[in-house]
Amino acid sequence: MTTTSQATSSDPTTYTVVCRLDQVEREGGVVALVGGAAVAVFRTYDDEVFALDNYDPFSRASVLARGIVGTRGDISFVASPMHKQAFDLRTGHCLDDAAVRVPAYDVQVTGDGQVLVGGVRSNS
């Protein structure tokens, strides 16, 4: 199963401010509405920020931001809160099923601590 992005943000170069960094807890996630799509924004223990589509293709529910964030080897991942499949925070690849991937979004954190979400990453 391959999940392609249906969530197209208007312009890949525009970024939307979604929240302040301190609104995302370490090793936790929030959901933001970006261009009409539900985007899960995660923050790791070392303050890196990642964004994935919030939709879990396994359970077909919009829930990934509510999962537990951790590491497998060197890879930071989120475990779906439904059935625990792990998704690589950088790429959206499912670590338990190579055929499955959720869209990953560009993210930035500004100097004054604002989190910005951009477009879907084409390939990473």
Partner: peptide, 10 residues
């Protein structure tokens, strides 16, 4: 070691 996961954290 590492940062934990959905097994050890709960």
């Amino acid at each position: 070691t590492g940062r934990g996961c959905d097994i050890c954290k709960p």
